[in-house]
C-alpha cells in the first residue's frame, strides 16, 4: 500500500521534471545556437536569450531607436484597445440581447450581421484610416468592430439558451415580458456574455497590434514593425514578450471578474 502510494508520487514528480527539462532545454538550445559555442545564427536574424532579456529591461528606460520607451508604447496600445473594447462591448452586448429576445429584430439584423462577421477586424483599418487619418479614432473604431462580433454572438446565444422552464416559472408568477427578460433571461446568460467578453478582449488585443503596424506613430505594433525595417529582432522579440504578458494579464483580470460575479451561486 505504501509502496503504491510512493510510486504514484514519484510519477507525478517525474512529470514536473520533464516540464522543467523542456523549458530549460528550449532556452539552452536557443542560447547554444546564438550566444553559445555553436553560435552560427547572426544577431540580426535571431539574437540570443540573454541579449533579448537585456534589451527588454533596457527598453523601459532607453528611447532609442524609435524615440519612446516601452511603457509609452504599451500605454498607447492599451489606451486604444481598452477604449475600443468598452465601446464594442457596450454596443455588442445589448444588441445581442435584443436580437436574442425579439425574434423580429433577429430576423432583420442577423443577416446583415452574418455578412459582416467574417470580415476580420484588421481589414477595416485602411477604410477608417482613409476616413479619419492615422490618429486614435480609426483604431478605436477598428477595435470596437473587432470586439463587437464575439460580444454580440455570445450575448445572443446566452439569451437564446435561457431554459424554457425558467421562463415558465416567471410566467406562472405573473412576471411581465420585460421582467422575465431582466430577471431571468439576462442573469442566466451572464456566463455566455462573459465568455464573449473574454474572446473579444483577445481579438481586440491581437487586432490592435496589427492595426498599429498599418498606421501609428506609437504602440507595440508600431514598434515591432519599425524594428523589422531596421533589423532589430531583439526589440521585436522583447516587444512580443510584452504583448504576450499583457494579453495574458488582461485575460486573467477577466477570469477574476468572472469568478467574483459567479460567486453568487446563481447558476
Amino acid at each position: 500500500m505504501t509502496a503504491k502510494k510512493a510510486r504514484g508520487k514519484k510519477k507525478k514528480h517525474s512529470y514536473i521534471w520533464l516540464s522543467v527539462l523542456s523549458v530549460v532545454l528550449f532556452f539552452f538550445v536557443w542560447w547554444l545556437f546564438t550566444e553559445g559555442s555553436l553560435g552560427t545564427i547572426k544577431e540580426n536574424v535571431l539574437p540570443g536569450p540573454i541579449k533579448v532579456f537585456q534589451t527588454l529591461i533596457d527598453k523601459f528606460s532607453n528611447k532609442n531607436p524609435d524615440g519612446a520607451t516601452m511603457q509609452v508604447h504599451l500605454w498607447a496600445s492599451l489606451k486604444v484597445t481598452l477604449t475600443g473594447y468598452v465601446i464594442g462591448c457596450l454596443v455588442g452586448i445589448p444588441l445581442g440581447i435584443l436580437m436574442g429576445w425579439y425574434e423580429k429584430a433577429d430576423m432583420f439584423v442577423n443577416p446583415i450581421f452574418d455578412f459582416i462577421r467574417p470580415i476580420p477586424g484588421i481589414a477595416w483599418t485602411p477604410l477608417f484610416i482613409l476616413l479619419f487619418g492615422i490618429g486614435m479614432l480609426p483604431k478605436v473604431i477598428v477595435i470596437a468592430l473587432a470586439t463587437f462580433g464575439p460580444a454580440l454572438v455570445n450575448a445572443y446565444t446566452g439569451i437564446r439558451q435561457t431554459k424554457e422552464v425558467h421562463i415558465w416559472v416567471g410566467q406562472t408568477f405573473g412576471a411581465s415580458k420585460g421582467e422575465i427578460l431582466r430577471k431571468i433571461a439576462i442573469p442566466s446568460s451572464i456566463p455566455f456574455i462573459l465568455t464573449g467578453m473574454r474572446v473579444g478582449l483577445g481579438v481586440a488585443w491581437s487586432t490592435i497590434i496589427g492595426a498599429e503596424m498599418l498606421a501609428a506613430t506609437a504602440g507595440l505594433g508600431y514598434l515591432i514593425n519599425l524594428c523589422r525595417g531596421i533589423y532589430r529582432p531583439d526589440i521585436i522579440i522583447a516587444s512580443m514578450i510584452c504583448v504576450g504578458v499583457i494579453g495574458a494579464a488582461l485575460g486573467l483580470v477577466l477570469t477574476f471578474l468572472e469568478r467574483q460575479l459567479m460567486k453568487g451561486g446563481r447558476w
Partner: peptide, 21 residues
C-alpha cells in the same frame, strides 16, 4: 509534460504580432 510548457510559452502572443518577425 514536455510539450505543454513550450506551447503555453508561445500561446499568449497574438498571431498578428508574429508578422514582422
Amino acid at each position: 509534460a514536455f510539450m505543454r510548457p513550450l506551447f503555453e510559452l508561445v500561446r499568449p502572443i497574438p498571431t498578428l504580432a508574429w508578422i514582422p518577425l
